[in-house]
Design a protein around this nucleic acid. Structure first.
Lengths: 155, 155
DNA sequence: GTTTATTGGTTACAGATGTAACGATCGATT
DNA sequence: AATCGATCGTTACATCTGTAACCAATAAAC
């Protein structure tokens, strides 16, 4: 008779990539979130939407979805929130009235600029703490993931 | 008079570390989640709790919180779910009746073993796709984050 | 030119989450 | 031994999320 089953397999969670990755990502995001949350009470979808429009200029909601890898309902709600804040305006396309073009107002642009400055400081600070070698390694590793694991489109 | 304000600063979202990290982590997690979701309809907190108890043997809920970096309400709910599935049992500590010791049942252990096998295949497959160099770089980068950005304890 | 399919965007609903408050228990202080 | 504070775990509530269904508008098929 055997002892138990075969050999008891064990998974070390702290060495399991999906776990480590998500844990690190969430912690870093939580830290960065403090900045835009404290400053303007923004949520992550709002911040990402602001960032995307700030980066690309006038875009549609669909373009925001594609560039920010957010679910379309998140974008839809974030757009409304930013609109209520008067940080962006929508204009319906004249040729295709399903489409709305989104662009920042002056106030939105100001908020964007402010947050970009904060983001850059955050990034510099983080890579500084990590150290050059680790920062480069992380960049390389993330690049590989981005190439390997293309986003599974969500409906 | 100046053109607009000063120089219009732009943040490239796709080069912003918190964004890249979270995006990569979520995609990898989503892929791995398919396995345990399809197989047993488990949620991520349930899978993590199972993994933690499987790894450490008999533990308290608090220990699960610490080892799995999950919020205590998540753990509390996951424990109940696993208990309803009859994959674990709780025993109140005799000396300190606030504490509950959690351990897997035979069925829980079987499910754990099964999922460990799947997890290991997933990990091997992922690192395989990434390639040795990128996998090592990722490991190094994540290690640096883990050392640098210690988890901000959540209440 | 009408029907059908597709697309951009919104929303109702159900499920998951964190915050804050809670009950129960224990230890320390007096 | 009565009180205070801390700890373990649960839960009520509000918020956030994704799924699926939806509306409106366009494009494709016939």
């Amino acid at each position: 008779m055997r002892q138990t089953a075969d050999i008891a397999p064990v998974l070390k969670l702290e060495a399991f990539l999906p776990y480590r990755l998500l844990r690190a990502a969430e912690e870093v995001s939580r830290r960065f979130a403090r900045h835009y949350k404290d400053r303007h009470g923004m949520t992550r979808p709002e911040w990402r939407t602001l960032a995307t429009i700030g980066q690309y200029g006038t875009v549609t909601a669909k373009a925001v979805v594609e560039h920010s890898s957010m679910h379309k309902t998140k974008v839809s709600r974030a757009v409304r929130a930013l609109e209520l804040r008067r940080w962006l305006i929508r204009t319906t396309d004249e040729n295709d009235r399903r489409i709305e073009h989104l662009q920042l107002t002056a106030a939105g642009r100001r908020a964007y600029n402010e947050l970009v400055a904060i983001a850059e400081i955050f990034q510099r600070d983080l890579t500084g703490r990590l150290g050059g070698e680790a920062a480069r390694a992380l960049d390389l590793g993330l690049g590989a993931i981005e190439r390997t694991v293309q986003p599974s489109r969500r409906p």
